[in-house]
């Protein structure tokens, strides 16, 4: 919101950014329908054990689990989606065998142990890790606190000391 206020104070808000034509308001409609995997709680546990909460926010607080679910459903092939479902099943099975508990009920160390050592689904587990990192490193928390992200820097210096 802050950025928008800056824009307004520059007088650029007069362009009618808040008053877009109907095609523009609908540009993304239809993409909000929800698809639930059979065990969507698992994503929360998966991202939480990959990048946990400490004294700083972890992947779950930036919503990485929602992103994983959304992006896998919307952007990847049926083949990959079925590998994902199979992997979730296998993780669940292993949680039951080892701890007699559902995967999502494990503590983070137990969950991570199962995730890391899952060699049969290594490709999919790495895929989860990559998506979790992507979500975390694109988050407002990470970009503004760590990357010094600015949307509109209005300058460029080609050669500065580190």
């Amino acid at each position: 919101m802050e950025r928008r206020n800056v824009i307004k104070s520059l007088g650029i808000g007069l362009l009618g950014l808040g008053n877009l034509p109907s095609w523009a308001n609908n540009w993304n409609s239809g993409s909000f329908e929800h698809f639930e995997f059979e065990n969507s709680e698992m994503f929360a546990k998966i991202v939480d054990c990959i990048i946990p909460e400490t004294n700083t926010p972890g992947a779950k607080s930036v919503g990485a689990h929602k992103y994983l679910e959304k992006v896998i459903k919307d952007c990847y092939s049926e083949q990959i989606q079925s590998e994902v479902k199979q992997t979730l099943k296998n993780l669940e099975k292993e949680a039951m065998v080892k701890h007699q508990k559902s995967f999502e009920k494990l503590d983070n160390l137990q969950a991570l142990e199962i995730l890391k050592n899952n060699t049969a689904n290594k490709k999919t587990v790495d895929f989860f890790k990559n998506l979790t990192i992507r979500s975390y490193t694109s988050s407002e928390y990470y970009l503004t606190n760590h990357k010094n992200y600015q949307m509109a820097p209005a300058y460029f210096h080609g050669c500065v000391a580190i």
Partner: peptide, 18 residues
Amino acid sequence: NHGDYPTTMMQPWEFEHL
């Protein structure tokens, strides 16, 4: 019209598929 740019002020984390 100039200004009818629905995504122009969106932050990277506001795109649901990043």
